[in-house]
Amino acid sequence: MPFCISLTVNGVKRNIEFDDPRVTLLDLLRERLDLTGAKKGCDRGQCGACTVLVNGRRINSCLALALSHDGAEVLTIEGVAQGEALHPVQAAFIAHDGFQCGFCTPGQIMSAIGLINEGHAGDDPERIREAMSGNLCRCAAYIGIVEAVQDAQKAIAEAGRRDAA
């Protein structure tokens, strides 16, 4: 294999060999690492279904060349829950019915986690809507998605306070 990169995927560092420079991060995850949670909806950065966190930031993995991400830390939807315990964003998506078909959901959830990490939106629903606009949902579960982000953000903040206390 002519190409080898080192990636930390969902907390596990791995050396990954592959034979083609064209492989995107999304296709690497889906077709070569059996991490099929991230979805390919457009393959052109136009829908957000492929959103993952790279070095803590949400990006479209379909427009990321795998080779260029040598040394990166990648978090995918598969690495979000702690065992059987769902991440607060995941739980909130279920509680608020923030999805229907579920295809865009891994991207929505990764984007929501990214948004909360960024910390720019606060609890303002208008800012959350804007910040989640890179994730299309053709089922149009947008109302539930915004409610889920608000709720999860609260839950995370409360958990943080408890930890601090």
Binding site: G45, I59, N60, A64, G114, E118, A131, M132, S133, G134
Partner: peptide, 9 residues
């Protein structure tokens, strides 16, 4: 411009 994901990249 674009989306949060694209602006991050």
């Amino acid at each position: 411009g674009a989306s949060a994901q694209l602006r991050n990249a």
